[in-house]
Design a protein around this nucleic acid. Structure first.
Lengths: 222, 222
DNA sequence: CGACGCTTTGACAAACTTCAATCCCCGTGG
DNA sequence: CCACGGGGATTGAAGTTTGTCAAAGCGTCG
């Protein structure tokens, strides 16, 4: 494989959430502890020490932050083969919970460091943090400046892009979508109905949809 | 801006904005290029290559992202001695502009790397990315789940905390505040009036205020 | 001192939320 | 296999918050 090809792959990997460092992958699989979590079970809590690195094996995970009065902001969703929990230096600023029953690989950061070496470890941690920052920046624009229908369209768009399959299954309920988008479940529901009426997407049950008009969806996502 | 005022700002910023790596600081000061930018001048553009590291010497900087129809989201504000522009791997996802006339130290990332060594460089870059992520996560909660008055209260709170001085000068106009908070200038203005009526803060001119009741302000920031 | 640009204020409109009722899956048990 | 129950989802009507448009105020800088 040429150097250019390799570099290109790295960029692609950075641009889309996906395969991280290969060495780290191996170590993670070999040394990581497999843990299973039931739906809604906490994986780590807000303000807990961030000593571990996590990787989704199956199922899905959300990160979230609560205000004292119960309002909730979801930071992101993580699917199979994605890494999470690397976000902070000292403490986790978001908690992580199982979106559905799921299996997660857990590895102590210091163990990974001594296994792959300081350099590789630094690079990995930075790459993950950077990917996370990038997602969060997109999320910022969505929350700050998009309308409700743009938010919902963006959300479906991203989901459909990740699973390039025909029919996409939503791994989360309306409340989780709402708390990710800064809306209420009713507004989310109305916007979904609207997108269907416009023949942009088609739902078969609340958790399953197809994109009928990708161009229109992209346009509505603004 | 007077020299005394300028020095004061530098000291305040040193006391609060977390000190970065000292070696990197030195290198930045020794090898960095001093550039001056006029108010609203672009420092780097969205989707430009991110090869440089920037540090504010005097004045202030904002990062922002535009939608095709002109809607704008501001990512953050940077003051004296703060580092910016390290956010991304390949391309800048936000542009940076001078909030006021300002002086910035610019250093090519590769130059810093070879000057301080790979290890220190990695650590520095990760620390900055991490700090940035942390800010952005706070911002996410603000945009997604806070009300207009909570947003404005949070904003004044953070500003007052950074400059622990009695009277705080706003380095930006209402439009910049609005684009940071995901509001309109009119709503920002109304919320400010409201905070004054509640005797929580007191404005002397549109750009200068004192916090009268810090507890109340913290409570309103939620 | 005057003028321009930014800020504030007011009245109205639109977007989104709230509250409440109904619907519809979907899984369970008969 | 079908009926049933229940939790999540949808829909409607009304309310609240925030945005829009327009005009007036105020400060700052020639």
């Amino acid at each position: 494989m040429t150097q250019a090809h390799l570099l290109n792959e790295v960029q692609v990997a950075n641009a889309f959430a996906a395969p991280t460092n290969t060495a780290a992958n191996d170590v993670m699989a070999r040394m990581g502890v497999r843990m299973t979590f039931a739906k809604d079970e906490e994986i780590y809590g807000q303000d807990e020490e961030a000593d571990f690195i996590y990787r989704v094996v199956s199922g899905a995970v959300r990160t979230s932050r609560l205000m004292s009065d119960g309002r909730r902001q979801i930071g992101g969703f993580y699917y199979a083969d994605e890494t999470f929990g690397v976000e902070t230096n000292g403490l986790h600023r978001f908690s992580a919970e199982a979106l559905s029953d799921c299996v997660v690989l857990v590895l102590k950061a210091s163990a990974l460091r001594s296994a792959v070496g300081e350099d590789t470890f630094q690079r990995l941690v930075w790459a993950e943090t950077n990917r996370e920052l990038s997602r969060t920046q997109d999320h910022l624009l969505l929350l700050g400046r998009k309308t409700a229908s743009e938010k919902v369209a963006s959300f479906l768009m991203e989901l459909a892009d990740r699973r390039s399959a025909e029919a996409v299954t939503l791994p989360m309920g309306r409340q989780d979508m709402a708390d990710y988008l800064g809306l209420t479940i009713e507004t989310v529901s109305r916007m979904l109905t609207q997108l269907q009426s416009a023949l942009v997407v088609e739902f078969t049950g609340a958790r399953r949809f197809r994109v009928n008009n990708r161009g229109a969806l992209a346009r509505m996502a603004a």
